[in-house]
Nucleic acid binder design. Structure first.
Lengths: 202, 202
DNA sequence: ACATTTCGGATACTATCGGTATCTGAGTGC
DNA sequence: GCACTCAGATACCGATAGTATCCGAAATGT
């Protein structure tokens, strides 16, 4: 063992490599697209060769799953924050729409997810993984909606699960459309949300 | 010129070839996916070789656009019929949801469209073509919604354009999700539609 | 401290697939 | 019936995901 502390264990090295690969892959997948980005390019941009990718991930698909996970974490954080910062329904929706404006379609999170889902549809493993993530997202959203409805004392026209599924679908669909046609205005999201979470008319 | 009438002009032959290619491509793209289906396979399954594809289409992308067009025609027909057959709002929505149950996600129209949109995002030409089709779809839907609102004498909480965009997004998003996770119930569509086209309160 | 083992990452190779260049033969017009 | 055209066939190229193999440095045992 050498004198200074710069010495690093193999596991740590590999963890760094993995992290760096995910980081670079995320950047390239988001800007160029999943299918359009060759594995080599990711590896080289991260300062490695393809071998590094294959000794850290089972293949391109698993690399992309890791990328999606890193994005999910941020998304959930953003959503929870948007909803919990404010207190009244309108400003909550406004904060959420503001988050959506930044996150749905512009940095193409959704486009990547959707492209990947479509491209990897044939792989049962990937399909299962994606479904798992969607269900987590959905129950998280449903919980949030239920909680807010409770706090605001309103009775929703849709069950929290239905509302969550609708919002998620809406987000995915709008993200997909906006990545092609940026003229679509996210503020429609606000209107749709208001409709979906509007209290039942008595 | 031979005696019987089975003789066919070159243009007619080519039209037949083109049609057959689209037909077979549609079938394969829907069942196997766009990226997962090699051009050769389409050509051979149709009884030709790759050369036939390239002398009828500029490439795989244009073949897929032709496939999408053939699907759009059917979709529009189905939607218009669902809405125009019945007269009162509820049974119209019901008919539409019934159409959606058959068409959104099961035969993977949406999955194909979404996969193609994602895969071909980098091509400005394809992007323009898809945007054109979406705008047509959207204004068709908006027109239908406006007409129905008029007939039913209700004032919508969203403008017809907004409602159309929302519904289209919802359809795309749900189609994409359902193609992965068939446990998602389309009946949520009914609830979401009712919310979105619900008359303004007060 | 030296030999041995392990394994993260590199290199070389294969298979697949979209696209291009070239060819061929049946159908067309003179 | 002869030269020509063009739909479709064939042969090839380049890109890229994945595999098989190799190398060298870090870990381990004595």
């Amino acid at each position: 063992m050498t004198v200074d502390g710069t010495r690093i264990t193999r596991a740590e090295r590999q963890a760094q490599t993995r992290e760096r690969l995910v980081e670079v892959a995320r950047d390239l997948f988001l800007t160029e697209g999943y299918a359009a980005t060759p594995l080599d390019k990711v590896a080289v941009a991260a300062g490695f060769s393809k071998g590094a990718v294959y000794s850290n991930f089972a293949g391109k698909e698993e690399l992309c799953l890791a990328v999606l996970d890193s994005m999910h974490a941020e998304q959930i954080e953003g959503i929870v924050e948007a909803f919990s910062a404010r207190t009244d329904l309108d400003s909550r929706i406004e904060a959420f729409v503001e988050w959506a404006r930044r996150s749905v379609g512009s940095p193409r999170y959704t486009a990547l997810e959707v492209e990947f889902a479509a491209a990897a549809r044939h792989s049962p493993f990937v399909a299962r993984e994606l479904v798992k993530r969607h269900r987590e997202m959905r129950s998280m959203a449903a919980g949030l909606i239920a909680q807010i409805a409770e706090e605001e004392g309103i009775e929703l026209a849709l069950t929290p699960e239905q509302a969550a599924t609708s919002l998620l679908s809406l987000g995915i669909g709008m993200g997909a459309m906006r990545s092609l046609d940026s003229s679509i205005d996210v503020s429609i999201f606000a209107a749709a949300i208001r409709s979906l979470v509007r209290p039942r008319d008595s």
